[in-house]
């Protein structure tokens, strides 16, 4: 049983919550751009939150289910349909054998997640299913999905319970999700080198809008807008960087490091996007604009904790539904 890829879409990859523990060996974390959406999709079908799922980018794939399947779609609304009929997102959906999942136009957001009950039956590489495209490892044969691929799914021994999902119209409280609006305001804390920037630049980073350029990808978002400069040129010693680090190369155009970011870098780090807003940032479509709003480290961590609490609530609610 599994998923037959009829059309691959723009960029469809297998991702999970990332390959952790190997950055010191130069191996990037990868994983879902929007880990919140990936975790919700998994929870909705009764999986552990960190299971592998498909990350679907803007132009979605066509997928045939070779078996009855419980699925959930989350993240960006790319107008999903099953056998031509529009299908609800953010809830468990029972799909009959030989049904075809397709996507029409992107309505909101950039990246959609497809989870299947039981998870995908693929080998882990270094403890993770995430696709690391540049090194050709993880995911499905280390690459983006292509037409003709067959992605095996684990048998789900809870088929009976799965049926009850399909019969209920249950959907979790939308209040629990991040608010994916276009041209969002992204909250950030000051980066380690914030104070090295000129007075003008350190004001402009909060007041100006920046356009996410078309060159943006899973590695990083290149921002167009005002150029930012250090008060005086300074050579930095390379050190670790992370998902959401906003670094500024000498020519002045900021880059936000995303899920496939390098492990270390030497450019001054003006901001760090807070973890709770990374899902919103992950859903920004190239061409849209963003602005930054300052929060303190303490606020950032409280927002993160609240998001985790929402996931715990959701996991409990799913558990209750399953056992109802």
């Amino acid at each position: 049983m599994g998923l037959e890829i009829l059309k691959p879409g723009l960029l469809t990859t297998i991702q999970d919550t990332g390959r952790h523990g190997f950055q010191k060996e130069g191996i990037i974390v990868s994983g879902a751009m929007d880990t919140f959406a990936l975790r919700v999709a998994n929870l909705l079908v009764g999986n552990a939150p960190h299971e592998a799922a498909l990350e679907i980018t803007l132009t979605g794939p066509s997928i045939r289910f070779t078996q009855d399947q419980l699925i959930a779609l989350s993240g960006a609304d790319l107008s999903p349909t099953i056998n031509g009929e529009s299908v609800a997102m953010w809830r468990p959906v029972h799909v009959k054998k030989d049904s075809i999942l397709e996507f029409k136009a992107p309505k909101a957001g950039c990246r959609s997640y497809l989870a299947v009950a039981g998870g995908l039956d693929l080998p882990q590489v270094m403890g993770s299913y995430a696709t690391f495209l540049r090194a050709f490892i993880g995911g499905f044969q280390g690459r983006a999905l292509q037409a003709g691929d067959f992605i095996p799914c684990r048998t789900c021994d809870e088929q009976g319970i799965a049926q009850s999902f399909s019969s209920s119209n249950w959907t979790p409280d939308p209040q629990l999700y991040p608010n994916y609006q276009p041209n969002p305001c992204i909250r950030a804390i000051k980066g380690p080198e914030f104070e090295l920037f000129s007075e003008t630049s350190s004001t402009q980073i909060w007041s100006e809008r920046f356009q996410v350029s078309m060159q943006s990808d899973r590695m990083g978002y290149c921002l167009q807008g005002v150029s930012l400069y250090l008060e005086e040129p300074t050579e930095l010693i390379s050190s670790a960087v992370t998902f959401g680090t906003v670094q500024v190369p000498p020519e002045g155009k900021p880059i936000i490091l995303m899920a496939d970011h390098q492990t270390t870098g030497g450019y001054p780090r003006i901001l760090q996007v807070i973890s709770a807003d990374l899902p919103i940032l992950a859903q920004v479509v190239p061409g849209q604009t963003i602005s930054f709003e300052e929060v303190t480290l303490e606020e950032a961590q409280q927002l993160y904790i609240r998001q985790e609490q929402h996931l715990v609530q959701l996991a409990r609610a799913v558990h209750l539904k399953k056992n109802a």
């Binding site: 804390i189 380690p192 680090t245 760090q272 961590q301 993160y304």
Partner: peptide
């Protein structure tokens, strides 16, 4: 010093 809300850097020299 903090590197965002989920990492912290210890610096031993410059």
């Amino acid at each position: 010093y903090p590197l965002g809300d989920a990492a912290v850097t210890v610096q031993f020299g410059d």
